[in-house]
Amino acid sequence: MEILVNSATCYKNNNIIFKNANIILDNSEICIVMGPNGCGKTTFIKCLCKIENLDSGHILIDNINIQDRKSNYLDNIIYIGHKNSLNDDLTVTENLEYLGAFDQTVNKNSVNKIKDAMEYFDIYKYKDFMVSELSEGNKKKTSLARLILSQKKIWLLDEPLSFLDEIAVKNLINLFSKHQKIGGIIVASSHYDFSDDVDNFKFFKMEN
């Protein structure tokens, strides 16, 4: 698995969001996208999963352009944006069950796995709570529990650490290194310095 971003440029209403972004990521590499507010971190990550399109340059995953029709990049990508992608009117458990509809790598009828995922992030006690009743941190944890359930190789995370408490941050970093050991790739935007916790670590600095 390899991600290659080549002179990617993105405009919005004639404003440059970012330009000439180049990055190569191989198996077991973690890339932290850093930069001040408004420098295009979110847009960059959205471009990687084609929610937004580049204006020039290209993104190759396993040497196939993601704009290409025959690219099956979505089979390998899990994207968690800073909107949590949770349905407010479903409970935490139901939301995680619903995930199987969007991700074929999630084991269906995996009641135990869902329980494990909730326990990992310490939200099992909220399992029957509506998502709308949860605090922001717990919503974030619920959406991050998707990472445990899914077996996809590439994780694209937009500000995964926001709203999380210290223990949850530690849990997430453990999860990162676990994923790294099995050869996964992670692209995350964050202000947290991961360099002490994980190796094979790349910085990607963006500027205004």
Partner: peptide
């Protein structure tokens, strides 16, 4: 509208199974 605000639409678009059935 709600799905858009919650980011569920983003999940639709990055889903690896067809969302047409949904």
């Amino acid at each position: 509208r709600d799905d858009y605000n919650n980011g569920v639409i983003e999940m639709y678009l990055t889903s690896s199974t067809g969302v047409e059935l949904i």
